[in-house]
């Protein structure tokens, strides 16, 4: 399955994940084209979040979680190889979580934290620029430019989530993983995040887990449908939502189960 075509930001094959003895992902192979948005959909507990968290090794912190498989970044970097430092990987593969989780620090410090620990900025001015630019890209700058020293937890939910996106892109990743980024937000904030995703795909490869079929169809060009740890179907978003090959997929997107 893994071909050497580096049009893919990330290629995975033969992925198995176990929580203790319980299987969570069963032989999944999935490639993510560069600068495109790929949605992972499926009913709760189907393993889509687990799969997403494999891509930046967030599952490492869970002791009982056992990940096997091939994961190639840019066609040549095996992200589970012992030579790869997980911190370096996460510099390239950023993540935005389901519940906005800004640090209870200032807005500025939230965005500046990543660049600081990775030593990306060589001067205070450069750091200021990165913070400003990241907030710009996350569409938040205009709203917070006068209160950069306010505590981030005082922002609204949607603003917090965009701040988390700014925090993720401040370290200049290649890929951004989003784990149901809008599930805790109201429709207006959701619309803003979706617009943002459309802008961000110019520069980043985005992989998004979502429960909202309409969101998947709005933001993504490719969609993968998971069920019970298996990848049931993968293809162009348009095709998946109109003429899926598998009956299971059809049942799910038409709301017959899940």
């Amino acid at each position: 399955m893994v071909d050497q075509n580096s049009n893919y930001a990330l290629q995975t094959s033969e992925v198995y994940v176990h929580y203790g003895k319980k299987m969570a992902i069963n032989n999944v192979a999935l490639n993510f084209p560069k600068n495109e948005v790929t949605s992972l959909i499926g009913p709760s507990g189907c393993g889509k979040s687990t799969f997403l968290r494999c891509l930046n090794r967030m599952n490492d912190v869970i002791d009982i979680c056992n990940v096997k498989g091939k994961f190639l970044l840019n066609g040549n970097v095996d992200i589970y190889s012992p030579d790869i430092q997980v911190e370096t990987l996460r510099e390239k593969v950023g993540m935005v979580f389901q519940k906005p989780n800004p640090f209870p620090k200032t807005i500025y410090d939230n965005v500046a934290y990543g660049p600081k620990i990775h030593g990306i900025a060589s001067s205070q001015n450069e750091l200021d620029e990165i913070v400003k630019d990241s907030l710009h890209r996350a569409g938040l700058y205009e709203e917070v430019k006068d209160r950069m020293d306010d505590i981030a937890t005082g922002l609204s939910g949607g603003q917090q989530q965009r701040l988390c996106i700014a925090r993720a892109i401040a370290i200049r990743p290649e890929i951004i993983l989003m784990d149901e980024p809008c599930s805790a937000l109201d429709p207006i904030a959701t619309a803003k995040i979706e617009d943002l995703i459309n802008e961000l795909k110019e520069n980043y490869t985005i992989i998004i887990v979502t429960h909202s079929m309409s969101q998947a169809s709005r933001v993504s060009s490719k969609t993968a449908f998971f069920h019970l740890g298996n990848l049931v179907e993968y293809g162009e978003t348009g095709k998946i939502f109109t003429k899926p090959d598998k009956e299971q997929t059809n049942d799910y997107i038409t709301g017959r189960f899940g």
């Binding site: 989780n101 934290y113 370290i171």
Partner: peptide
């Protein structure tokens, strides 16, 4: 979530 947030930025 705070730990995850920090780990996720490397």
């Amino acid at each position: 979530s705070i730990r995850e947030g920090a780990l996720a930025v490397g």
